[in-house]
Amino acid sequence: MIETIDLYKDFGSLRVLNGINEHIEKGEVISIIGPSGSGKSTFLRCLNLLEIPTSGSVIFEGVNLMDKNVDINLHRQKMGMVFQHFNVFPHLTVKQNITLAPVLLKKRTQQEADKYADELLARVGLSDKAEEHPRRLSGGQKQRLAIVRALAMDPEVMLFDEPTSALDPEMVGEVLAVIKSLVQGGMTCVIVTHEMGFAREVSSRVLFMDEGKVQEQGSPDEIFTNPQNPRTKAFLGKVLR
């Protein structure tokens, strides 16, 4: 579904991605772990060209997104993204947050979008907040809203950029539960996370990144119980304890 070929990204003289070749298949749930500054988020943001790679290709459903003739906006509609800081739209109501894009991009009529928004809100337990503005929501509620806002575009894949890192501890669970239900529904997910327990539980594959490279990858069991790479061992030794 998504393939990266020789992906490099430099910020000035700093090399953040150092040649990544990965293939993400439909239905996979991939967790990306690694120390901060290892390039995890940058890699994720390159997948929908939120960061433009310095060189290399990103192939999404057979189309090279780096191609100049490609309308990236069309492809982004199929790649939902959830951010660390939620980025819900404060000037719109909860429901408008969800319906804006599908209606504006003519994916649904306002009526259809409203109906679907109600369904989505019910799924994440926010039905009673539909007409509120996001300022009235807690962090966990904002993040659940951000997730269904992305889902309203019927994406083929969901990208999560540290979705629980900005949350108070007691709200992490409710957001992870929503992501888990997505995974159970068969959604292809790429999740950059510091929640090792969660990564271990939901992933079909775990990538360990360090210094702009995928240093090791495998099933959650392989990575968490029997890591081979000394860097992986050192990292997990620090975070798991």
Binding site: N48, L50, N73, L74, R76, Q77, M79, G80, M81, F83, H85, N87, V88, F89, L100, A101, L104, L105, A146, R149, A150, M153
Partner: peptide, 12 residues
């Protein structure tokens, strides 16, 4: 982040 969120939804 607001513009980023909008762009990832597919808005130009």
């Amino acid at each position: 982040g607001q513009a980023e969120a909008a762009r990832t939804l597919g808005l130009n």
